[in-house]
Amino acid sequence: MSTPKKILVYVDGTEPSITAAQYAICLASFYRADLIALYVVNTKAMEDLLKARIFLQDEQMEYEHDMEADAQRYLNYVNEMALKKGVTIVPQSRRGSVHKEIVDLINEEEVDLLVIGELARIRSRRDEFYDETERAMRMAPCSVLIAKDEDKVWQMYESLV
């Protein structure tokens, strides 16, 4: 069985996504795989809010600017976590629809493993509800690993030399 050569971790700033990043750093170290960290500025959602007239034009721009700053901050944070363990990360910030950007990057970079954080704890059965990470999980053309149990993952990350 071949081991993963290129791993992608999706980071959105939530605690589960930080746990996913720790897990991905461990895997990249174990397998000596390349690691990409992706943050997507969800401009699709902002366009929808502008169309629905929930956002004003200047409000949309303000949020977009804030989210660009969030992207840099979280990618820097993940990069620092990786460097502490001697792992190099290629940070990528993209704009658009989250699940589509994840799938596009997997295809472009020939990623063979996607690592994501635990999905929302409470799920609605209503069709209207879905989250972008779950859509990415379903649509990803490669294997997907969902990192769970932040304490165990933290221990694994901490024990990494």
Binding site: T14, V41, M46, L49, Y63, D70, R126, E128
Partner: peptide
């Protein structure tokens, strides 16, 4: 400093209320 979750929650509300029956 949490514009991402804010935007996504607003977007979910927009989807939710599209159903008049709901």
């Amino acid at each position: 400093n949490q514009s991402g979750p804010h935007v996504e929650a607003l977007a979910e509300i927009v989807k939710l209320v599209q159903s008049k029956a709901f």
